[in-house]
Simulated assay, not measured.
Amino acid sequence: MSSSPRGVKQAVFAIWFSLVISVLSSVTSSLAGQSSLANLSGALLIYALAAVLTIKVAKGRNWARYVYLTVTCLSLLVPVFCFDAISSIDWLTTILLSPVEVFIIYRLFQAEASAWFAGATPLRA
């Protein structure tokens, strides 16, 4: 498979950025006493799985970008339904990273990215 398009590279970079910020947010929330060690452990496990998913996206696995889309949409709904269970730090992080997540999805599903994930050579204008 050819080198990934610029948009996919940008999306993967943004995913890693988002993961690092999310980990820092969860650790900070736990250290500030806003969430339990069990919550932190669960969050770190989810972030580890997200890291594996990110690697799959970077390698051009089409299924991985659809899983990423699904997980992202679900994760953006969690604060709405679990408002009281989320720390203020994690809430703020969710709000601040939402535009980043929209950018990631946009870049992963552009025509050039879709062609690359499908294994086709993108058309040049």
Rank of each mutant, 00 (worst) to 15 (best):
K9T: 12
P99N: 07
D84K: 06
S2Q: 11
S4N: 11
V12F: 00
L45H: 00
A113S: 05
A32P: 07
I95P: 15
V100C: 01
W116T: 03
T121N: 10
A111P: 09
S35K: 14
V102Q: 06
S75H: 13
F103C: 06
I89Y: 13
C82M: 15
T93F: 15
G60R: 05
A38G: 11
F109A: 00
V67A: 06
A11G: 09
R107A: 08
A32G: 00
P122C: 11
S88H: 15
F109W: 00
L96A: 11
A64T: 00
F17G: 08
L53S: 02
K9L: 01
W91E: 13
S114W: 06
S36M: 01
S88R: 14
I21P: 15
S18V: 10
T28F: 14
I46L: 12
T121E: 10
L108F: 04
K59E: 11
S25C: 14
V67T: 04
A125S: 15
P5Y: 00
I21S: 12
P79F: 02
S4P: 12
L92A: 15
S3N: 09
I105F: 03
R124Q: 14
P99E: 06
A14W: 10
L45S: 01
K56M: 09
I46D: 07
V52I: 03
W91A: 12
A11T: 04
G7R: 12
K59R: 10
A14V: 03
T54N: 02
W63Y: 05
S98M: 10
K59V: 08
P79M: 10
A58I: 03
R65D: 02
A58F: 08
A113T: 01
F103V: 00
R61N: 05
L31W: 09
G119S: 00
S25K: 13
F117A: 03
S18T: 11
L24Q: 13
A58E: 08
I105C: 01
R61W: 12
W91F: 13
P99L: 10
L19W: 08
Q10M: 09
A115C: 14
L77M: 14
I86P: 05
A118R: 11
A14N: 09
A38P: 07
L77P: 11
I89C: 14
I55A: 10
L123N: 15
C73A: 10
Y66C: 02
I46F: 08
V80S: 02
W63I: 05
V71C: 14
I104L: 05
S35N: 15
R61V: 13
A64G: 01
V8E: 07
L96Q: 06
S25F: 06
W16T: 09
A51S: 04
L19A: 09
V100G: 01
L40H: 12
A111C: 09
V71P: 13
Y68V: 06
P99T: 07
V67W: 03
S2E: 05
Q110E: 08
A11Q: 08
A120G: 08
I21D: 08
A120E: 12
I46N: 02
L108N: 01
D84H: 04
S4W: 04
S22W: 12
I105Y: 02
V8L: 08
A14E: 05
T28I: 15
S87E: 09
A115W: 12
T72H: 04
A43N: 12
Y47G: 04
